[in-house]
């Protein structure tokens, strides 16, 4: 049984074929990256995988179960978490509160228990807080713990979003351009986090990324897309030197 598989995925918006016949497989424990020039359909694939809209053709299979057609809020409980290219945080909440919402799917206490704050609730809250503190330690967010997200610099918010995704304890983590908007130093940090997420936490990562430095540093395998179609797949070095990829990025010689 494959861990995560996309089969013959396709979608069109009006007359534009955004994604056409894309298939790939992500193995447990690896970092799999989708690259491609602007408009290649990378983010669209992400949105299809996250069930924002249903595909016209094909299916998405996670841990042997077809997930296409499920409501988007079911994705988290399956064990899939994602970040967004343009950061989608709860702006008027603190970093800690944002991470705690990541624990939503792990919260089991009942309404009346919550209202009365019974001992069971207290115990559960402590456990949630502990799980969040582990993420805070892992990503070194301690000094921002009680800051409002709206006031934080872009680079930190990017890490907070990563933290919130980790707080859901996913088995598959989807990163949509983790380096976009980051300076070279922050991108370097991001590469470390991604490596640690893979090695220390054992979480499988599927990402879309532009920065080829970051891609070749952290990815085990790379899929290159152009105009909604796969053009090459393999190790970062193989894909980068593939003639079709060179042509897609630089134009025909």
């Amino acid at each position: 049984m494959s861990f995560f598989r996309v089969e013959n995925l396709g979608i069109r918006f009006g007359g534009v074929v955004a994604v056409d016949g894309v298939s790939f497989e992500v193995k447990k424990g690896e970092v799999f990256t989708i690259i491609g020039p602007n408009g290649a359909g990378k983010t669209t694939i992400f949105n299809l995988v996250c069930l924002i809209y249903p595909p016209d053709t094909g299916r998405v299979v996670f841990e042997g179960r077809e997930i296409t057609g499920l409501a988007p809020h079911r994705v988290a409980e399956l064990g899939i978490a994602r970040t967004f290219q343009n950061i989608e945080l709860f702006e008027h909440a603190t970093v800690l509160q944002n991470l705690l919402i990541g624990r939503h799917r792990h919260r089991r206490t009942r309404f009346w228990q919550d209202l009365l704050f019974t001992p069971a609730v207290r115990e559960a809250e402590l456990a949630q807080r502990e799980a969040v503190e582990r993420v805070i330690d892992f990503l070194e967010l301690a000094k921002y713990r009680d800051s409002l997200v709206a006031g934080l610099p872009y680079g930190v918010r990017k890490v907070v979003e990563l933290g919130r995704a980790l707080a859901t304890e996913p088995r598959l983590l989807l990163l949509d351009e983790p380096s976009s908007g980051l300076n070279p130093e922050e991108t370097d940090d991001m590469a470390f986090w991604i490596e640690d997420i893979k090695k220390q936490l054992g979480i499988t990562v599927l990402m879309v990324e532009h920065d080829m430095n970051l891609v070749s540093r952290v990815s085990d395998r790379v899929l290159a897309l152009n105009e909604g179609r796969p053009i090459a797949e393999g190790t970062p070095a193989e894909v980068q030197s593939h003639p079709a990829v060179v042509e897609a990025y630089l134009g025909a010689a």
Binding site: P72, V75, F84, A93, I101
Partner: peptide, 18 residues
């Protein structure tokens, strides 16, 4: 809390499982 989250950011709320 889910209501608060939803009113701040619906997209993010979806992917927290709300």
């Amino acid at each position: 809390i889910a209501m608060q989250a939803t009113s701040q950011n619906q997209l993010a709320a979806y992917y927290m499982g709300i």
